[in-house]
């Protein structure tokens, strides 16, 4: 199966997520009520959009980690055709200190299909009940670091305040998830 996704809509409970990080440790979403909010970021190693947004996204990870927000980054790209997205290449980035959250390997691509991930990056913000409250791009311009992942931060601020993010959904911008043939 290649690129056939079901996906999750705003207000839906997020699909389960259980994936290994680059050291082999398994990570999953918190239990409902265990964290005030969760963020799952589909990303990759080789995509210029993901690279352009990386530091802004990690800035949000650092700024919200102390506010009971859990972050997970996921790479689902086909590493066979795109060796830059191999587990080893992921590990190198983690060891270089490029990630302030777990960087998970979705080798089967099942998670990407279940969540409906389209691009890298593709950002999902969940509330404490694991319901999707924001999905889309980190901010409005990959080429403007001053944007500081404003859409992601705004969504988190809203969720932490018990409000609905506005916008709740934006177009995901980036390279397509590289599905296996």
């Amino acid at each position: 199966m290649s690129g056939e996704t079901s996906g999750v809509a705003i207000g839906d409970r997020a699909p389960a997520l259980e994936l290994p990080d680059t050291a082999g440790a398994t990570h999953s979403l918190p239990e409902p009520g265990e964290a005030a909010a969760s963020v799952v970021i589909w990303t990759s190693n080789h995509c210029p959009y993901a690279i352009a947004w990386q530091e802004r996204l990690m800035g949000a990870v650092r700024d919200y980690a102390g506010r009971d927000v859990r972050f997970l980054a996921v790479n689902s790209n086909d590493a066979e055709r795109y060796p830059a997205d191999s587990l080893e290449a992921m590990r190198e980035r983690v060891e270089a200190g490029e990630f302030d959250c777990p960087y998970l390997h979705d080798a089967s691509q099942d998670a990407a299909r279940a969540w409906g991930a389209k691009t890298t990056p593709d950002v999902y913000v969940l509330d404490a009940d694991l319901r999707l409250r924001y999905r889309g791009a980190p901010d409005s311009d990959y080429d403007d670091p001053a944007q500081e992942a404003a859409w992601l931060r705004g969504a988190l601020d809203a969720v932490l305040a018990g409000e609905a993010p506005d916008p709740a959904e934006t177009d995901s911008v980036g390279c397509s998830v590289k599905w296996r043939a």
């Binding site: 080789h46 995509c47 210029p48 959009y49 690279i51 055709r81 795109y82 390279c175 590289k178």
Partner: peptide, 8 residues
């Protein structure tokens, strides 16, 4: 070469 995103 390949069907990928170009890095500039």
């Amino acid at each position: 070469t390949g069907l990928t995103c170009r890095l500039y």
